[in-house]
Simulated assay, not measured.
Amino acid sequence: MMDGKTLVLRGRVVSGVGSFSFWIGQLQDHYERKTGMRLYPGTLNLQLESEYSLPAKVIRLEASEYGGRVSVSIVPCSIQGRKAFLLRTDANENGTGDHPKTIIEIATDVRLRDLFRLQDGDYLEVAIAPEWAAYGTSEP
C-alpha cells in the first residue's frame, strides 16, 4: 500500500528457519558497517498477503565481501517507529531460496518479538521510506 510517500507492508508474524540468526551473528561487523547499527542476531519474519519485490535501490552485502556464497539486499525501514532493516537474500528474491517473496525478514538492534510481545499470527506494519520504496512492489 502506497500513500504517496511511504510504502507500508502489512504482514502476519511467522516463525522462520533461523538462517539469519546464525549469519548476522557471524557477520556482525559487516552488517554494522552496512547499516550503522549492531543488529540483534535474528530477524522477525512477516508473511504478506501478496509478493514483495525489492526496490531498485538497496544496500548490498556481497558474498565476496566476507568470503561467502550468499549476497543480501538491505532496505532501511521502520517498524512501529523503530529504525530497522528488511533483509533478503538473492536466492529469496529470485524465488529459489528458503522463503517465497511473500515473506519479509526484519532486523534491528533488539529482538522484536520481545520488544513488542509478538507471537505467531500477530499482525504488524513495516514502513519503507519513499527514497527506498521506489520501484519496490507489493502486488495486489
Rank of each mutant, 00 (worst) to 15 (best):
K34L: 08
V110K: 14
A63M: 01
R113G: 02
Y40V: 07
R38P: 01
P100Q: 12
G18K: 12
P100G: 15
S19R: 08
A91L: 12
G42S: 05
E93R: 09
I59Y: 01
L39G: 00
N92G: 12
D109L: 08
G68R: 08
D90P: 00
P55T: 10
V58L: 05
E32F: 05
L86C: 09
I59M: 12
Q26F: 10
L54I: 06
S50Q: 11
C77H: 01
R60T: 11
G68W: 05
P76G: 11
R38W: 06
R33F: 11
T96S: 15
G81R: 06
S64H: 15
D109A: 13
L61I: 13
A63E: 05
N94Q: 15
T102K: 10
G42V: 10
A84E: 07
G16D: 04
V75H: 09
V70L: 07
K34M: 07
G36V: 07
K101Y: 13
D29I: 07
S50L: 11
Y52P: 05
T35W: 00
Q80D: 06
L27F: 00
E49C: 06
G97L: 05
R60W: 13
V14E: 04
M37I: 14
P100A: 13
I59K: 07
I106E: 00
Y31Q: 09
T35Q: 05
I106Y: 04
L61P: 01
F20G: 11
